[in-house]
Design a binder for these strands. Sequence first.
DNA 1: TAGATTGTTAATCGATTAACAATC
DNA 2: TAGATTGTTAATCGATTAACAATC
Lengths: 226, 226
Amino acid sequence: MGKELNAIPDIIISRLPVYYQHLKNLQSSSKEYVSSEELADLTGFSSSLIRKDLSYFGTFGRKSYGYDIYCLFQQINIIMGFNYKKKLIIIGAGHLGQALAYNKGYNERGYQLISIFDKNPKLIDLVINDIEIQSVSNLERFLENNKVDVAALTVPGAAAQKITDRLVAAGIKAIWDFTEVPLKVPEDIFLEEQLINEGLCKLSLKMNQKRLNQDGTTEDLSCGQK
Amino acid sequence: MGKELNAIPDIIISRLPVYYQHLKNLQSSSKEYVSSEELADLTGFSSSLIRKDLSYFGTFGRKSYGYDIYCLFQQINIIMGFNYKKKLIIIGAGHLGQALAYNKGYNERGYQLISIFDKNPKLIDLVINDIEIQSVSNLERFLENNKVDVAALTVPGAAAQKITDRLVAAGIKAIWDFTEVPLKVPEDIFLEEQLINEGLCKLSLKMNQKRLNQDGTTEDLSCGQK
DNA sequence: TAGATTGTTAATCGATTAACAATC
DNA sequence: TAGATTGTTAATCGATTAACAATC
């Protein structure tokens, strides 16, 4: 894709959803200001890092007070583009696809879910959270008539690449991928892998590390071949 | 928690699930070996970084051949502790909780889902993917009689801290959290936040950045206050 | 005023890359 | 042998932290 001139460093991008979440939760507190030190407690990032991250985008703080919670939240919303409306469709109305249809996170981030597609005739015409599931054979026609920004992919792995190719051919520019297979897309398509089992992986690894530390053993790994 | 002596750097941990996923997918190819260069193509990490990451754990490669796919996959499984059996419960049988009940990723990672809890009487006794939903009032009794390693938390945000406190009191050491509220847990508890909407956040930000770059505008952010 | 806390600089720390000897 | 590719070193690059002047 070629980095843009003013591209936000990935490492900062990865912390923005965390700031967003905590500031959103702080809205419902009675506090007006939050300090970088308090945000450090909440997020686990150092206060110094938080101040530096925020200063990348502008000057939001007030010396000796901290950051106006409401105001900073609004700014983060603008930085993340949540004030722009985006249309979303879900491809694959299995259990995960259906659960995503009930996800409450869209509106606050500027997304609107407008349709769900599946190929299973038993699911077609079923209404999930006020959205009717339609046949994936309608996909191209639907995309011609509706400006869709993001497609969530919750189809079985075996179908993922074919559907992706169709989405790309129909002009979709961003894919939110829940399948666990590697997808090939042109360079100008935004592809976000949502590794649903990532947390389970990390927990397993951490529990394993703890076990190894307690046992005092050091696993000697090698492939046994020269 | 205090870092362990031989703690694997977080940045390497974060790439392990990606290696795992691609090596798993490579199992079903006809290839026997994969080079760091090929893995670089698949993952987007540089080949140099991949060789360095893997060398952190041992010597797995074979000069001029690359890495034995099956063997390396097995090693990654061992590193992540997937060869150890872990028991999992789900708290909250809403749409997301139910979708997690159908998740196919447990077994290959050494997890076994053994129960689902909810407080809604309409859901109790319902069978989801062969697992019976039981009343959350049974939680403590159940945990006394069953060694549970990880609890997945898919309850509404408002109930999250209370349930967490009960889980911790009952001896749970690892929580896979899907709620979007900050949870307080003792230092010795592993807590993994699974930010389900993270991908949507990043896509929104990237689309917004692209728009800004095309417009040539630079948003001037500031809180309007001195 | 005294205390608090930002925004920013310079110093430090750690992660990534480039390069290449070793060797299959 | 010539070509391929690892494992590892040293160099580079970038991210984080510590510190503090500015100031509310």
